[in-house]
Nucleic acid binder design. Sequence first.
DNA 1: GTGAAAGCGCTAACAT
DNA 2: ATGTTAGCGCTTTCAC
Lengths: 332, 332
Amino acid sequence: MELKQQATVTLAEVAEAAGVGESTVSRVLRNHGSFSGKTRERVMAAVERLGYVPNRIAGTLASTGSRLVAFVIPSLSNIVFPDVLRGASAVLEENRYQSVFSVTDYDPGREEALAAAMLAWRPAAVMLAGYEHTDGTAKMLRASGCRVVELLDLDGDALDIAVGFSNRAAGRESAAFLLKRAYRRIGYVGHDLQRDTRAGKRFSSFCETLEAAGAPLIAREILAGPSSVENGRLGLERLLARATDLDAVYFSNDDMALGGYFHCLAQGIAIPSQLAIFGYNGLDIGRAIPQPLSTIRTPRVATGEIAAQLIVANAPPQVVDLGFELIEGATA
Amino acid sequence: MELKQQATVTLAEVAEAAGVGESTVSRVLRNHGSFSGKTRERVMAAVERLGYVPNRIAGTLASTGSRLVAFVIPSLSNIVFPDVLRGASAVLEENRYQSVFSVTDYDPGREEALAAAMLAWRPAAVMLAGYEHTDGTAKMLRASGCRVVELLDLDGDALDIAVGFSNRAAGRESAAFLLKRAYRRIGYVGHDLQRDTRAGKRFSSFCETLEAAGAPLIAREILAGPSSVENGRLGLERLLARATDLDAVYFSNDDMALGGYFHCLAQGIAIPSQLAIFGYNGLDIGRAIPQPLSTIRTPRVATGEIAAQLIVANAPPQVVDLGFELIEGATA
DNA sequence: GTGAAAGCGCTAACAT
DNA sequence: ATGTTAGCGCTTTCAC
């Protein structure tokens, strides 16, 4: 260990040490413009010797565009969002972009405040979940001049770019599948739908599809709070206490469905003969349980990847429907 | 929708519109220094009217310290890290800090490159997992003058602040528990230990403890790639094919252990009478399966929270041991 | 209580 | 190929 901290080295010091001008150092470091091989070596040597770390704050202020992408996500507990971040950050890091994030906890007011805070960093793009924003958020985003990507939902009007799939279609196909399998007495176990609007959309189109087929939803159990395995278990327990003659249950997602599955396992309820279970998300764990979970696999990582690629490429406004895949599984 | 984009409003324009000086606007906006109530109103009105969003890039450059915290994490697939981020970001957002992150994929070389990139934003702190950094990373971090927090591991020397618990102790206690329960023919199923050094530490102290008790590990199955439920299932299947007389298996974490549990369920192997299973992490799902998983619950969210609190409070260098909790469960 | 002016550390013309 | 010089949009003395 050598030099002391705090006294951060600046580009000017590197220039002085290398015996060249500041702009030359800048050119060499960004590998942009022209300079001789010798100059390059002297600059790099000075950088190395002084332990220079460029200041991106200054760099960004002086130039345009910020190689910073802001994510405003509802939650980190729901695996969906880490998955999206994972896909996006892989692509972004490859392209030397950086990711800032903040968590709204499904609160539109918080989303607005956090989006404003993110905008203050003048990101190249802000990515947020779905279409349900306050007027303030939408207005701010539009006025910011930075790219906006709405993720994981296509049922609405895009501000700029949207990448994901239709939650309504997912709900519809789930219902159609259960109907096709001849289930007619269907129930639902879900988590807080006011907050998770995408789950709400799935649920409402699920119900519509059942009604249109003359087999309306028999009973529902909505639990307060976020989705979890334990809430799924509890939800099914409560639902079955009220509605004893169900033949299938649709869950708001796989976490909840797994809870339901475990409840049946523990109670000796035969799946799917006595009760069918259908989830949403296509988590890996659903494939590893003794009977693979019937569910819809969503392109979470791909959503992040595509969104990032579009931003890196500065693509025009567009809606990208990645679709989803219905997994027949063995529980329905 | 009103004005056009791109022409971003600056503080100078707000000052002009409000008929005051720039520094006055700055004072009002940061609520710092003195100004009259009237001035305040006029400034706020102008801000509102013009839709001004302060530029933090410029603000940070002009002032000192950056209310930015950088996370350099190995993965987003392993729930551990989203959990840490969740705890930290809740505290940080409350204190108007922002979070940048990047994912190393367990590669120390990448960690160095990404840490350098993060440092370029002059964050208030950089938080990274564990102690295993390259010399270059350590040197850079030390020279940067910014706070460093090492998370989730206490078996080593801290650069500045460390928050977490001892993985060696976790491995030791897991072994002690199995021995106390009179299991003597113990096997191990794990994922890539070269990369996940914390899992490696647990494993080695687990083995040492077994040996010291005269019941050395009988067999192990290490799978390439990250931990997953499916790999746990596969790992146990392979392990049992080679070692038929095991009475307990230790897994590198709960994901893997759940896979093992499901394998037993599917194969009709009685748990724990025929085979005991022990995990690590204390995931919620482990409590929802028919037999609660025996495991060690780690303070992941709390690790993030405490780390963030220490940074917000600008606490002195220290090591915070949050410990962990052994869950007896029903699988061992 | 308020304004003027000097930077913060870079980048991007524009010279040379 | 390289140096000089204006900013980028703020914060922060320091006068008034």
